[in-house]
Design a protein around this nucleic acid. Structure first.
Lengths: 140, 140
DNA sequence: TATGCAAATGCAAATTATTTGCAAATATTA
DNA sequence: TAATATTTGCAAATAATTTGCATTTGCATA
């Protein structure tokens, strides 16, 4: 069974063409994307933008997707809730997002839990910089 | 000299009543706040909301303040750019924010810069958990 | 201390991101 | 296949933020 079908089954959401389209776009994206980007990706399917928003909302509600905001941007971004824990590198100029492999914080978070007595649930690390391409633009 | 006056002098921004008001609100806030909150705080001064936004923009431009978004919220929040680099521990239940002393990422960020060829500017770490007090509530 | 001018502000209107009401369409279940 | 609760499309509403433009103000300098 496809992972979309599984997700619908577990969550109790109906298996519609629109949900499948949005799911597929999220699945093939390797960085978080916003509603507008998903909508544009699906122009040929002529899904309504408000439907995209509603689908994303339902996905977040059911833990199928994760909603977040990054940096100074005020646009919500979404990604499939894959188990793997990931962080991102954001370019301050072109706003491109790159995933970083590995998490430098595992041990730290464990220690922190002991010293603060917080029950740590999750963490988010955002690193901002200038990507090599934008640096090159300056060099010229 | 007040730190507002200093900030205006260093940045070259004019020292206006409105800027001083916004600065003071930011200065006395110990967590980041949004434009609407600042506006409401200043109702008695009757500053226009768009002026608040413009002032915040100019502060961010001049590194007097820092703009960010947190979690799933799509509203920008602002805080004075106090030099100290800090991370925060956020309680998922009572939403209290606690500052963490020390940064576990200094070496990591330096290494990352070498491997990715990004010119790293800054980073933000958000740790979410349940604070001891909220845990205790459950225990009962 | 007055004056000129760029910068800053207020106000209203525009834009962008997101949400909502409602009627029509569709998936699921019996 | 019919019944029904869910989902979608569309248009309009709302929330957050930005912009154009006329007016005001801070500050340099005469």
């Amino acid at each position: 069974m496809g992972s979309f079908q599984q997700a619908m089954q577990r969550s109790g959401l109906k298996r519609t063409k629109q949900r499948e389209c949005v799911y597929n776009v999220l699945e093939k994206a390797d960085v978080p994307i916003n509603a507008e980007q998903i909508y544009k990706e699906l122009l040929s399917e002529s899904i309504n933008l408000s439907t995209v928003y509603r689908i994303l909302e339902s996905f977040v509600e059911k833990d199928i997707a994760i909603k977040a905001t990054l940096g100074q941007s005020v646009t919500a971004i979404y990604e499939l809730n894959r188990q793997e824990h990931k962080h991102h590198l954001i370019c301050a100029e072109c706003h491109s997002i790159v995933a970083i492999s590995g998490c430098p914080l595992e041990q730290y978070v464990e220690d922190l839990s002991k010293t603060t007595h917080y029950q740590i649930l999750e963490h988010k690390l955002e690193i901002t910089g200038i990507c090599p391409r934008c640096q090159a633009k300056h060099g010229k």
